[in-house]
Design a protein around this nucleic acid. Structure first.
Length: 115
RNA sequence: UGGGGUAGGUGAGGUGGUUGCUCCUUCUUCGCCUCAAGGCCCAGAAGGGGAGGAAAGUCCGAACUCCGAAGGGCAGGAUGGUCGCUAACAGCGACUCCGAGCGAUCGGAGGAAAGUGCCACAGAAAACAAACCGCCCUGUAGGAUUGGUGUCCACCUUCUUUCAGAGUAAGGGUGAAAAGGUGAGGUAAGAGCUCACCGUUCUGAUGGUGACAUCAGGAGCACGGUAAACCCCAUCCGGAGCAAGACCGAAUUGGCCCCGGUUGAAACGGCCCGUUUCGAGGGGCGGGUAGGUUGCUCAGACAAAUAACCGCCCUCGCUUCUGGCGGGAACAGAAUUCGGCUUACGUCCUGCCCCAGCCA
RNA sequence: GGCGCGGUACCCAAGUGGCUAAGGGAGAGGUCUGCAAAACCUCGAUUCGUCGGUUCGAAUCCGACCCGCGCCU
């Protein structure tokens, strides 16, 4: 399994976002909220939503890099293809990399158990 | 040694590796359009570029683009000691004057003698200086009585009160601010009334590109503050902004454009001059929404690119010290591009200067 | 990214250099009532988002900063 993060693996259309907000299921973690829904494609897609409430531009960019890297390095753990939206919470600023990774793995277990 | 001022640099660990993102160039390969030239696209390889001093706030100025010829005027806005630098600026440099500070240094800057407005409360008065209180002089009427003439009455003198007239701006608890200040002379009392010094102002000379400075002479001095109040003077400015704008262009809707032009009507920058359009008739077939491309860059994205982990070295803190643990920051992330300003942050380094204390 | 508007008590707000910074709602206390409601009376801003400046004097004028809201693809 590759660790790439190609443009087609990103959610970019407003339609897709609205569809996920309406139909997707939610997992509430310590550092982020994950909205997910299994899709018809052969690969998973992901997006990170960081509002201005999260912090300034530096904090928002760093958060997005971390969460994208988390998805990219752990693609082989996904049993099916999903569309996922990360919504980071303010607590993520205090998190270490290892804590965040554990939270993500717990989220994946939750998703697989539910679906 | 301690405290302070000012100017500048630096915005930071180094190196190697694994995984990964974005753009460009070259090459290979799959597919599509096309007669072809060529173009689009998937995947891969090699090479190269890839956040800041403030990228920020959007406070000024420009480039660039469109708006109706962006032409004239009005309104409105900006700037404000002088000289220079600059594409331009509210920027920068040097200098001048005033003010603050023991000082290094810092802050301010057109016009109040063109006109208008305002100056609450307090105060006699807040702006042609006049009225009031007070001071002083004269006259009148009354009283007291020191002294003199004198038997008393009376007269003169002194003090005091009322009224009238004249002089005066020295003084009057106030106030942010009171009509040049201090001292001496002078006077009935006073006053630039006179004089000395200081201040103000005018004229001239000299020096300086200039702001201005210095010197000399004159004027007794007339004109309080406020222009970050209206305003006046000088200089500058049309408006909007890359979400500007240009090109391609489905579905849907039926119009749209050009020529012409009497009178009339309408539209267009904040307004006017002005400009344009409409309507008879004739000719032509494009306009534009979603979306895409471009504007767009040796950073150039468009749900928006720099990250994660590990080894060694350097360095800082803690510690139970052949070692172990934790850290290497703060402010903060390009969105058309430049020149500034302001604000936020702070490590280390450097130069110059001032004040105080101690030692020699 | 660009452009614009606003910030005054718990809420809505007036105020355009000089009174104790209007008024309404809500709240607290009182009068009234058997108890309430209504009505009436009383109370509250150490300061006008923050910090500087102009001025004798600033919510008001000038500058910088902070916060909130809206419009343009």
């Amino acid at each position: 399994m590759d660790e790439n993060f190609t443009p087609q693996e990103r959610i970019r259309k407003k339609k897709d976002f609205l569809h996920l907000y309406k139909k997707g299921k939610r997992y509430r973690g310590k550092y982020f909220i994950l909205i997910y829904l299994s899709n018809e494609l052969t690969f998973s897609r992901v997006a990170v939503v960081a509002s201005k409430k999260l912090g300034n531009a530096v904090q928002r960019n760093r958060t997005k890099r971390w969460l994208r890297t988390l998805f990219r390095r752990n693609k082989e753990l996904l049993e099916k293809s999903f569309d996922m939206i990360f919504i980071p919470r303010k607590e993520i600023h205090e998190a270490k990399w290892q804590n965040l990774a554990n939270d993500y793995l717990a989220a994946l277990k939750f998703i697989h158990r539910e679906s």
